[in-house]
Write a protein that binds this DNA or RNA. Structure first.
Lengths: 141, 141
DNA sequence: TTTACATATTCGTCAATGCGGATATAATGA
DNA sequence: TCATTATATCCGCATTGACGAATATGTAAA
């Protein structure tokens, strides 16, 4: 029997949100799917660290990933519970108030405008908001 | 200089929310101030455990306490940031969906209707929603 | 089939935190 | 003052989780 997406418990979700690095990751992928190398570039943190936190978010059911060749894209996953959806929207809205989070988003935009300047993302696929593809996010699993 | 209420960081708040016992406590005090002995009675957990979790919530800036003789009342504290306020409202709404949380609230109402049956709260001051005093919560600190 | 590159995982260490049990503190009343 | 009651804190232990460093895996390209 194919295991359907299990409901995230509130405490599990909040544990996932209880770390600065993970909040920064969610802040960046709030709008769109992003490739791992962007997170590493923007947050300027060791790649294994980023990877570990992404894995934590995935295990907590907050994000999903999709492979595209060598690259792996992460995006937020809509919880099945409407209250939880609303809550995640609120989280992102709160983060948007934070100066450091705004700076992260600004760095993302800058990196996307001049990918050639960023060693890590020079050849990586661009996020949708740059390439212009409107919401063609495929379901992964 | 009197220290004003410092802003709660998102990660700190979410850490505070990342525990089942603390969520149950918040669920109970969502509507009104409550005396510690009620938490002990309703959750049916060791008093030191309840006390530790209440202390955690207090340190995280989520609740405040007020002493009344032998008893100490806890209530949720409004964050200064409107986004955080909205978020806490959402948390409570989400919890209200949870069967176990509903059961807790039902036990609270039952305990308040027959305090003589509950050894721990036999003589404790009743919560405002029982005694009928409309929102006379005094600021503590 | 090598090589290079993107990403994930493992390992050892350390700090934070949850718990039960015991004890301390604070207010009340005899 | 002493006893009682409500609540808080401390102790020792186990678990979780964050980290850097090293290494493994998977894909593509030569």
């Amino acid at each position: 029997m194919p295991r359907t997406k299990q409901n995230v418990t509130p405490e599990r979700l909040f544990q996932a949100l209880g770390d600065r690095t993970r909040l920064r990751l969610l802040n960046l992928m709030g709008d769109q799917e992003l490739c791992v190398c962007y997170f590493v570039e923007i947050l300027n943190q060791p790649q294994p660290k980023i990877s570990r936190h992404l894995a934590y978010l995935r295990r907590a059911g907050v994000v999903t990933s999709r492979r595209e060749g060598k690259w792996i894209h992460y995006r937020m996953e809509q919880p099945s519970n409407p209250q939880a959806q609303e809550l995640l929207r609120n989280v992102l809205a709160w983060l948007a108030d934070d100066k450091a989070m705004q700076a992260d988003r600004a760095r993302l935009v800058r990196a996307c405008c001049a990918p050639s300047k960023c060693s890590l993302i020079r050849e990586a696929p661009q996020p949708a908001f740059v390439s212009g593809k409107p919401e063609d996010r495929k379901r992964s699993r």
